[in-house]
Amino acid sequence: MAGRIALDDIDLRIISELRADGRLSVNELAQRVNVSRATAYARLDRLRSEGAIKGFTVVLDPEVIGLSVSAIVFVNVEQRTWEESVAELGGLPGVERVLLTSGEFDFALLVRFRDLGDLRDVLLGQLQTMPHVRGTQTLFVLQEHDNGLDLSLLG
């Protein structure tokens, strides 16, 4: 796990602008944050090298690309198998996110599929036949709203 780094107001503004548009040029970023190009470049380079910014990606709309069935699958595994289970669960088709959790379930998976048949095939044909899996519970996602990371918690 990466260590914590101190983020000042300029860092937070840079992150905020890049979250809104990850394709900004350094020149445009500098203008929006009201710093020099050299400062914007140095700050961006530091944020990337210290791990605050892990990368840039495309955000897809699952519905638009045909993945209209989303669910959260809670999974319990055999004791002391969580490390190998992370890789196994993450390798299943349709798994977007694997979360190790506390409480009643060991893992929560965010999964996306074209239809219920594909979901059924993975749940019954692959997930529930894994040797470490003790049980599952599936909740369908009816609607999503992504608030993004609340940067005000850092200030």
Rank of each mutant, 00 (worst) to 15 (best):
G66N: 00
R97D: 14
A20S: 05
D150G: 09
G3I: 03
R23M: 04
L127C: 10
E17L: 03
V95N: 13
R32Q: 04
E84I: 09
D21F: 07
R23W: 03
F113V: 11
L44W: 02
D115V: 01
V77G: 07
G51R: 00
G90Q: 12
P62N: 03
S102Y: 13
V86R: 14
S68P: 03
A20M: 09
L92N: 10
N76F: 07
A6W: 05
L124I: 09
R32V: 02
V64A: 06
Q126N: 11
V75G: 06
I5G: 03
L29P: 04
R112K: 15
N34T: 02
L12Q: 02
T101Y: 14
R46W: 00
F56S: 05
R19F: 01
L149Y: 14
Q31G: 05
A6C: 02
E83S: 09
L109R: 14
V33D: 02
R114Y: 06
P131T: 05
A42Q: 01
V35P: 00
M130N: 11
S102K: 08
I15R: 03
W82G: 14
M1F: 06
A30F: 00
D118S: 12
S68E: 04
S85E: 11
L110M: 15
V73D: 03
L60Y: 10
R19N: 07
L44F: 01
A2Q: 06
T129S: 10
G55V: 04
M130T: 07
L124P: 07
A20W: 08
L153W: 09
R19D: 05
G125S: 06
G51T: 01
R37W: 01
E144I: 13
T81C: 07
T138D: 08
F113A: 12
F107W: 14
R19I: 01
R112T: 07
L24Q: 05
A6Y: 06
G3H: 04
F107E: 15
H145I: 14
D106G: 12
F74K: 12
R120C: 04
V122N: 07
G90I: 13
V69L: 00
D121L: 08
Y41V: 00
L89M: 10
G103V: 15
G51P: 03
G148T: 10
N147G: 15
D146S: 15
K54E: 10
D150Q: 13
P62Q: 01
V58Q: 08
E84Q: 11
G103I: 14
F105R: 15
Q137C: 12
Q31F: 05
E96G: 15
V69D: 00
L153N: 08
I10C: 03
R114A: 11
P131F: 06
K54G: 08
S152N: 10
E88P: 09
S16A: 04
Q128L: 07
L109P: 14
R80S: 11
V95A: 14
A40T: 02
E50Y: 01
L92P: 11
E28I: 06
V141W: 10
V35W: 03
R80I: 09
S25I: 01
A20K: 12
N34W: 02
V64S: 06
S68A: 04
G3F: 02
A40H: 00
